[in-house]
Design a protein around this nucleic acid. Sequence first.
DNA 1: CACAAAAGATTAACTCGGTCAATCTTTTGC
DNA 2: GCAAAAGATTGACCGAGTTAATCTTTTGTG
Lengths: 198, 198
Amino acid sequence: MLTVTGLRERKKQQTYDALSEAAIALFLKRGFDEVSVTDIAEAANVSKPTLFKYFPTKQDLVLHRIADHRHESARVVAAAGVPPVQALREHFLAGLTARDPITGLNDHPQVLAYYKLVFTTPALTTRLHQFMDDDERALAEALGGDLKGELLAAQAVSVQRVLSRRNWEVITAGQRAADRYLDAVTEAETAFDGLPIG
Amino acid sequence: MLTVTGLRERKKQQTYDALSEAAIALFLKRGFDEVSVTDIAEAANVSKPTLFKYFPTKQDLVLHRIADHRHESARVVAAAGVPPVQALREHFLAGLTARDPITGLNDHPQVLAYYKLVFTTPALTTRLHQFMDDDERALAEALGGDLKGELLAAQAVSVQRVLSRRNWEVITAGQRAADRYLDAVTEAETAFDGLPIG
DNA sequence: CACAAAAGATTAACTCGGTCAATCTTTTGC
DNA sequence: GCAAAAGATTGACCGAGTTAATCTTTTGTG
């Protein structure tokens, strides 16, 4: 068995990428609701059932990028040697510095277009919230699963959602990420200060 | 114009009730996903498009009861003469005392069956979360719409969701509402104490 | 009390997201 | 090199939700 990666694996990856890229390109051009999954399957030279073997829902054609970050908060807390809230705060602040798109503080046109698509399409925001609920559950578990853990998890996820959304809105209104950075840090610190333990 | 309530209004109300009751009865008996909207329309002697004129989605046939409480938090805050967090806390505690189903502290079999249906059906919990997001937006607006308001709104909604869910789980596990009451109050006070300002 | 206008219900046909059973292709064990 | 298993592909199908045209019922008015 000398095959490093089977031919099959490579083809699968190719199909996956073709679907995702075709989908996002079409969605960006015509809008999420104006493109049918059949259109996407055709554009990727694949049948509709095949598409759904790669992506469980139409929304996931867009959101798989974000979904890859699933349970990140829980992992951060579990891996950290410091108190949970401190770990989450530092992780978010590092994200701001790195201009991680998930913090909303990124003004690359492609990133902006992508998030505009997500935030202005109800079906996508809905599914995004499902992912965040998953995140919250995992985080609550990582925090012990008791009342305090559940509350902290819910509030930590909320905080990150509100902060990211605000950053994205300011950037969308035209401000450069670099110009927003300091305010974003200030807001993040204010927000995390409001969490128990600190 | 002496007509107190037109005949038309009454018939509409009748159809509305017939649809809702037929739907919930069928869902409770066979499960949400095992009943088609066509089944419900037939049971209510109505056509499918007519059903959708009364309820925008299949889920709303179940959730309209909860949806009636929309923006309740925002209204509570707006109507109160006390600080927002205090108003929300008092409102929730009053709900516990009154065994308001929305607090999870209600052990009537019908109520339990209804919430079991809601919480164990993904399509319903998803739509429920959409309502809570609406609630959160309205509350944030009522709180001023700035960062602090948005954060407080998100956390207040989270707190109520976590508390209600915990109560429901304990009741579902077999405890009587009366026996849960004191713990529910304690947990609620702990949770609201964690919110800014208090 | 009749009747015109309008509001609402009905029907049939349609679109679209998602699933399934059967078929075909590729990989793998011998 | 080949048979069997694993996996990919497809056409046919189902259910939610919509639309346009038609028909019924209610209501305000002469």
